[in-house]
Design a binder for these strands. Structure first.
Lengths: 252, 252
DNA sequence: TCAAAAGTGTTTATGCTACACCCATGG
DNA sequence: CCATGGGTGTAGCATAAACACTTTTGA
């Protein structure tokens, strides 16, 4: 997010005490975890119901505060592992939200401690992802278009995550982190349309473009789903993809 | 940066005291400020010499710790304003580095306080950017290929910044934040070659592609630099560009 | 009048788009 | 045998890549 300098009124550099009035922080990690239900063509995001103040009883992204000796990424994996059992997953840092007053705990009982949130963006395979209901808290896959008002600034976080997902889909092979290991080309196409919206491309063109790239291997196995001609099941061939890594790809 | 789950040895969820052993943080902001010297076709990055421990006397990015009531972005603008007077600048968040042991102060005198760094990516116009030498500390524009060993993990931060710069150049009109207000098309071309490396495109093709996009307006004024035919001075026309915003552009 | 830098144009190959069409299956 | 979804092919247009050429200046 670009920000433009608008002749801000700078803090006067008084070299006084205020120079050392550093804020103390707790650092939280929040995971925006996406998945796609290929059967129903729905884009899902994982929400948990908060069991503590603030925002008790509201939906939010699974998050945690960072512990002693723990890296940000470790913390991200830790809550992830608490909420979900997934065999395969993709995780990367999303954005850091750190304004004052973004967390109601700040001004309250905790002597000016600030809460900063480093958000992470994750993708998991829907079929392989087993939610861990600990019997107490709520946890649910929410269709993206039905996400309610969230705790903290999490609706803004979601915006960032969604934008990242769309970009990733276009320029990197993340789709195969979300699809089951074996998938048909229409599965792939449906995934793209549900995330990127209708009319992003013609099916047959999408198909030939992807096949020409050469990293989708036809297993020969056919999948019959109701009426119509059975489709071939494909698999993403990581070796064949390797040379294309960090080349400017377009999956449009 | 994608990270892959490698069956990490998770912290045992003992529900013991360790559950609440939250780390305390100071949060720093570090600015990776790029500029381009069009006269000499050099890509520059702003470094300051540290005046305090740790890493006293080593080069680093201008940074500061976040103060009470100050947002991350405010802090970024604050140090920026301390080091440089710029009329126009571009700033966006880059990445957050937060592993334990990234700052030697952590294990030392400050009872386990962690130091986290939110890095920002900035672009300024070389001619308009006036460095503020406060008489004490060193400050300098370093050509990217001559950057020395830096303090903290700043060499890694620089890698991130450089990658971001290259991507931004290809997909967004940031080049015009770095160029002077009036520039020739070869200035623009030189900028792209110095950042993206030789042979990213033929000059004449680059030229016609850019002109066809229609947001470069010819001022009619000619600029003569030594021998050769004088070049037209162009200006970036923000209004003409507006409709193309967030369309998938390619400036290759 | 020549070299250097700016600017124009042309040719060829490649790619995207929009279709029309054929194939295999279940009902 | 027909509706449904899977899969193939192609004509026309737009763009990219390579390169030859012209124009305008300083020396």
């Amino acid at each position: 997010m670009p920000e433009r300098l608008q002749r801000k009124t700078a803090h006067s550099p008084t070299h006084s005490l205020s120079d050392r009035a550093l804020a103390d922080f707790k650092v939280g990690v929040d995971n925006v975890i996406f998945s796609v239900d290929t059967a129903q063509n729905r884009l899902l995001v994982l929400l948990v119901m908060r069991q503590e103040e603030p925002f008790l009883g509201q939906w939010s992204f699974p998050g945690t505060l960072v512990r002693h000796g723990e890296s940000l990424e470790d913390a991200a994996y830790r809550i992830l592992a608490e909420k979900i059992r997934a065999r395969n997953l993709y995780l990367e840092q999303l954005y850091t939200f750190g304004g004052p007053d973004r967390d109601p705990r700040e001004s309250a009982h905790s002597y000016g401690v600030r809460y900063l949130s480093v958000s992470y963006f994750a993708l998991v395979r829907f079929a392989e992802a087993e939610l861990i209901a600990d019997g107490v808290s709520g946890i649910a896959w929410y269709p993206l278009d039905q996400v309610p008002q969230l705790a903290f600034d999490h609706n803004k976080v979601l915006e960032y995550g969604h934008r990242r997902l769309r970009n990733k889909l276009e320029y990197s092979p993340v789709a195969f982190e979300v699809l089951p290991e074996l998938f048909t080309l229409s599965d792939l196409y449906q995934l793209y349309t549900t995330v990127l919206g209708e009319n992003f491309s013609d099916y047959s063109n999408f198909r030939s473009r992807l096949l020409k790239m050469g990293f989708l291997s036809d297993t020969g196995v056919k999948a019959s789903r109701g009426a119509g001609r059975p489709a071939s099941l494909y698999r993403f061939d990581a070796e064949a993809f390797a040379p294309l890594k960090d080349k400017p790809l377009v999956f449009i």
